[in-house]
Design a protein around this nucleic acid. Structure first.
Ligand SMILES: [Zn+2]
Ligand SMILES: [Zn+2]
Lengths: 417, 417
DNA sequence: AGACAAGTTA
DNA sequence: TAACTTGTCT
């Protein structure tokens, strides 16, 4: 622990409901465990904001150090982290808040390339969108789409149909590229590939396939004659499928994909959450649209969907009872607790703390508990830190690296334990 | 289904308790599933008496065809299959019944070699035995020995101490060889090796180890300076450790072993049960003692031990309520229902059916259910078939092959579905 | 679909 | 150690 604040104090100051909501959201967002990161079988995340050594308590006291060391009566905005998580999936909202940072309206070449692929939706001028057949949905067995979760659940190596919508009037020939990425900022840097077991040429799932060494590493398979399997220089696997024109009278073309590993595969995805990244590309490879879908490859799609939807319900319940409002709250420069303006570092961000009180009223219930405002302030601070990280990840991975080194060298403010 | 007997009939003729006990024992013994063998991820057992196509019902009607087609009032001996399974672990008993087939009292060279290693205990002239420290037992956490089950439960890559007893007065230098084998007759033919995930050189469990390609395949590791890792021509991995003399005043030497895969590893052991085979060998490699221990490598040894012991208790309960006596019953030529004398085929076994009524009284409760005698007869028949298989496996694998081909060609008596 | 199995997390 | 997760069996 650093400074004057004891780690256990931070917990005692927070009402348990709020504390639990914070814990829950940090866990889900980063996919770190309560005690010591994920199992030893994992790749070590390079981005170690919540490193192996940090218990959540330690992280919390760090937050206090940075944001709350001077007692103030901050009644910050209140929102749980999952709200932020949702925001990250809403580029339009994001863009509205940060006009300097048009993520998707410009050339894709401007985006941080391969190591950290963009996962924001962008319909583009072709009106790109992906939907699923309403029929057979949620009951068929081999796959099911959850609208409330916006998440697809599929069995391994079973064909799943994607309805690809592109403006009919446009006759430029286009491709769809499909790629998997990890959802968590901890893991998004790593390429998603098949586990050693399923990548063995002798495995059943590889019978009758091109016994190409590289192909065995591809989780995504396209049921299409002209599918082209690619491996990027950074090691990411994707498959490129020519976009067939929708049949006359139909407003979409159907894309057939399979996924050749389970989300639980040891040595592979290993229970990390994933997104399916579908990008619309010109024949020359220029990205003109993007859609990122949460994807879970599992043995029992319908059971797991039911389970996750129930869990999401419980989550909303907990939000309510902890006073954290479930409504989305756009983050702007005027309501963030970090004091770091939401502009890129290249534009001369001053990194000094800004601890001015925020004037936004509490949006949850305002009950009699004396610690409430502190607790909610904590939530806000954590939330902003996470958003900052996401921002850096997307815009300035180099800064994250720098930060990392800083921590590795035992930077005074952040050092603890 | 073959012949005049419908598969479903066989079930209806058997009291449910008895039927369930049969099913239970066949499943556990062969590790076949009720419907279609094990998961598709498996090696295909060459020995397919219960093949992928055979439901248990089909197998049952087969049994009737062969043994019970002529209605007879056979009140056969009654015993569940697990009794047989236990018998297989008792070579002395075995030998007493089949004096022509001294399994362990002769040169090991006479035994069916590598592809089917012997798993019978043999203390030999050195009084070879293996025990476990009584302390720390069942509570320590990383390993626990279950006396009732005669089974060792260990965590992966945790050191477990084996107390090796050898007559003190013998000064010949000896080795211990440790090897894993599958328990089920279906799988014992396959070498046990590490799963692809854990066999990757980059895996944590291989840090600081000889990065020898072969070593990565060894599940068993010995904490001993002079341990020698071997791979047999048939692909079985074992480790040979010089047997240290017991310290003066002690009657055993301590052998330290680790196991570098879980019993559940996909692409590896894959939930099949295993035995740890410890053989006492002279320096020239002659086997002079053997001990086979049931072994489960798992993440929660104590939980799983508790669970299996509870299950064994329930099993005895079911035996009792189904009228199948839990006592061991030696099988001899005079009480087997198969009509196949228990001598090797090389000694001119006639394979004709022998359906003479057996005079052995029922040993279980003799209640009013009309189907009881038929059901118990079924139990006997199945039991004998299983013993026959075990016998063939140990003594005449070539005959099993022949039988297999016979079935593959659609042998009339056995063919079904 | 429900129950079980077995690694992981709390 | 209990609860949860998630593949597999019934
Ligand atoms: Zn896999
Ligand atoms: Zn393994």
């Amino acid at each position: 622990m650093s400074g004057s604040q004891e780690g256990t104090d931070s917990e005692s100051l927070i009402p348990p409901e709020v504390y639990n909501v914070i814990k829950r959201d940090v866990r889900d967002f980063f996919q770190v465990s309560d005690s010591e990161g994920r199992s030893s079988e994992d790749e070590t995340p390079r981005l170690s904001f919540f490193s192996r050594q940090d218990s959540l308590d330690a992280v919390f006291s760090l937050t206090e150090d940075r944001v709350c060391s001077k007692p103030q009566d901050l009644l910050g905005h209140t929102a749980s982290f999952n709200e932020f998580q949702m925001r990250a999936q809403e580029p339009l909202l994001y863009e509205a808040q940060m006009p300097d940072l048009k993520v998707e309206s410009t050339e894709p070449d401007e985006l941080p390339p391969d190591p950290v692929p963009a996962t924001t939706n962008w319909d583009g001028e072709h009106g790109f969108d992906v939907t699923f057949p309403a029929a057979a949905n949620s009951s068929s067995g081999t796959w099911t789409w959850s609208s409330p979760l916006e998440k697809l659940f599929v069995e391994m190596v079973k064909t799943c149909p994607f309805q690809v919508h592109v403006n009919q009037h446009d006759y430029e020939p286009l491709n769809i590229r499909a790629m998997l990425v990890y959802t968590s900022p901890h893991y998004i840097q790593f390429a998603v590939s098949r586990c050693p077991h399923h990548a063995e040429a002798s495995h059943d799932s590889n019978k009758g396939c091109t016994q190409n060494e590289e192909f065995l590493q591809h989780i995504i398979r396209a049921d299409h004659q002209n599918a082209r399997y690619e491996r990027s220089p950074s090691g990411r696997y994707s498959v490129v499928i020519p976009l067939d024109r929708p049949p006359p009278g139909t407003e979409f073309a159907t894309l057939l994909l399979q996924f050749a590993c389970l989300g639980s595969c040891p040595g592979g995805i290993n229970r990390r959450t994933t997104k399916l990244l579908l990008t619309l590309e010109t024949k020359s490879g220029k990205v003109v649209g993007r859609k990122a879908l949460d994807l879970r490859i599992c043995a029992c799609p319908s059971r797991d969907r039911r389970q996750e939807e129930k869990k999401a319900e419980k989550r909303r319940e907990d939000d309510r009872s902890s006073g954290v409002p479930p409504t989305k709250r756009p983050l702007t420069n005027s309501n963030n607790t970090l004091g770091v303006p939401l502009v890129p570092e290249s534009k001369k961000v001053q990194l000094s703390l800004d601890t001015r009180p925020h004037q936004h009223g509490m949006q949850g219930r305002n009950d009699s508990r004396s610690n409430e405002s502190f607790a909610l302030k904590m939530v806000s601070a954590m939330q902003d830190m996470m958003q900052l990280m996401e921002f850096l990840r997307q815009r300035h991975p180099d800064v994250l690296n720098e930060y990392e080194q800083y921590r590795a060298l035992g930077g005074t403010t952040l050092q603890h334990k």
